[in-house]
């Protein structure tokens, strides 16, 4: 298949680069642990308040860590004119977008997978045997951020205020992902039944599909010079 090959090559290139110096992943992970520790001071440990706000904290950690990773991953592309090289490849721009979004997705997922157990231990989270749904929510939320974030990090990197610009663009637009992820996670952690959770999961899926299509179509206008 001639669209899988380029996506795989670009994705492998990103993963190899990350494997060689690990700066994005390490900084995302250490950052998320730091935020977890800071949040511990906001509430009385073990209080009911804390249990109610843990899903929110969880997503705040993921959102901020992903935003950091997204801006780093695009900045790396700009060093030594890598992006020019990538654009010169005889490959459709939308495939470059898909590959970059998949790479960002993997970074965000990895941060989630490492942070979640730590949070579970530190905040005594209960999962009520809802593992598959929880993983689905984590994956869908991460994918939403990865798609919109991949597009916006390309925009933000070409403005004068770079790192500050990305959250300003990303956060208001991703309000639906943030809401749906927090709501479904909090329902999952408080053991609510499936009928309450599923509308939010469906909203996440709808958002992910719409935004993937839109970003896929618009990416070429953003990277074109």
């Amino acid at each position: 298949m001639n669209f899988i090959q380029p996506i795989r090559s670009i994705l492998l290139k990103d993963l190899l680069l990350e494997w060689r110096n690990k700066d994005i992943l390490v900084s995302m992970l250490v950052f998320s642990l730091t935020v977890v520790v800071i949040f511990n001071f906001v509430f009385e440990p073990g209080s009911a308040e804390m249990q109610a706000t843990v899903p929110g904290i969880l997503w705040v950690v993921f959102i901020f860590a992903s935003q950091l990773g997204l801006s780093r991953s695009y900045a790396r592309e700009q060093e030594n004119g890598l992006m020019h090289g990538l654009l010169l490849c005889p490959v459709d721009r939308s495939l470059i977008f898909t590959a970059k979004a998949l790479g960002n997705l993997l970074f965000i997922l990895l941060v989630e997978v490492v942070t979640l157990p730590v949070m579970t231990v530190l905040f005594d989270l209960q999962f009520h045997h809802q593992w598959p749904r929880l993983l689905l929510v984590l994956g869908l939320g991460a994918w939403g951020f990865a798609t919109v974030g991949t597009l916006f990090s390309a925009i933000a990197a070409n403005t004068r205020s770079r790192e500050v610009m990305l959250p300003i663009l990303l956060f208001p637009v991703s309000v639906p992902i943030i809401l749906a992820s927090i709501k479904s996670t909090s329902y999952l952690l408080s053991g609510r039944n499936v009928q309450d959770i599923d509308p939010w999961v469906r909203l996440l899926i709808a958002f992910d599909v719409i935004y993937f299509v839109v970003c896929y179509l618009l990416y070429e206008y953003v990277v074109e010079e």
């Binding site: 919109v148 925009i155 070409n158 208001p172 637009v173 839109v214 618009l218």
Partner: peptide
């Protein structure tokens, strides 16, 4: 101008 157009489209759909 192109960034703004892209962001304006996404913002409105949002």
């Amino acid at each position: 101008a192109r960034f703004a157009a892209v962001f304006g489209i996404i913002g409105f759909l949002d």
